[in-house]
Amino acid sequence: MKTTDWPDIPYGAWRDTCDALHLYAQVVGKYRLARTPWLCHSWHATLYPSALGLTTGLVPDGPGGIELILDLVEHRVIGAANNGRRAGFKLASMSVAQFDTELRILINELGGTPHWHWSPNEVAAPVPFAEDTAQRPYDADAVSRFHRALILVALVFAEFRTAFLGKASPVHLFWGSFDLAVTRFSGRRAPIHPGGVPFLPDAVTREAYSHEVSSAGFWPGGGGVDYPCFYSYAYPAPPGFAPARIQPSAAHYDVTLGEFILPYEAVRTSPDPAGMLMSFLQDTYRTAADLANWDVRNLECQVGRPLRPRQI
């Protein structure tokens, strides 16, 4: 991947559009959450990067299954049911209330169930969707650049995921915090999480962190970080994790967040963006696993390659 393949996505330039897109993703995600059987660590509720944008995958509803796509290429919301029905509407400047209404109409047209929780999660001072009537901007060019970045990041995350034979999450987007993430597990139970995540039930947080993790992800900005960046953390964080020296040198430990941070801009302008990002993912994981004495090192392997079965 060439340096020029990684688009410039300065958070300040599209902050308001990003905030709107975050809330739209919450509405879409809450539909999936409302209809999908619970899976460990809330994996049943996430969205997935796709060639078009972000997708729910197949949601069990209506005639059998419904898929929703936030199309960030043609800037539309697309709904498809397994019986052949299709519906959609344009992504443009609108209010969150309008988006919520349009999505309910779309799902109803597909024969689905347009009912979900009425308010955002994990955001400061949440406003119920139906009451959020302020007009939101929609910078289509910025959204397209974000989508291109998201796909490039997802491809590196997916390659990193192949180098671990133990329990690992999909590469997926958590719409509450609006971050793309991939997580590895030691297999051991973790201490009960203290909870306290803004506007998220403690029971959800505690189930999500029921077992030890090393998790990495990507934020477009927000949540205390005013620039796009990558993060990596361990729960519980083992002694010595924060002061550890991590590669690449552009990474640093953020005491407030309790995570290692690598600015997206450092990756984007690197001669080898994918290589720099992979170094960050591997080094933070190895540091966490070594310091916490994970007993899964025999589950590490070379990254996967097409048409090459694992040597067992």
Score class of each variant (00 low, 15 high):
I107T: 05
V127H: 02
I9W: 04
T101P: 00
C301S: 09
F146E: 08
K90E: 15
V296S: 15
I261G: 00
Y24K: 05
H22S: 13
R104E: 14
L23N: 04
V213K: 03
S93E: 15
V77D: 02
T287R: 07
N83K: 11
T3M: 12
T36E: 05
T17E: 02
L72M: 15
P120D: 06
C229S: 13
T113M: 06
W219E: 01
D100F: 08
I151T: 14
L39A: 12
P263Q: 14
Q135C: 15
S249F: 11
N82Q: 04
A125H: 14
V255D: 07
W6Q: 06
M278I: 03
A124S: 13
S95C: 06
G112A: 09
F199P: 00
A208L: 08
N121H: 10
K90D: 11
Q311T: 08
A292D: 13
D71W: 03
D295A: 09
D179F: 04
S210A: 14
G166Q: 13
F146A: 11
T101S: 11
V143F: 07
W116M: 01
F199T: 07
E67I: 00
G29C: 02
G240H: 07
A242N: 07
P194T: 02
E212P: 06
D139Y: 07
S50C: 15
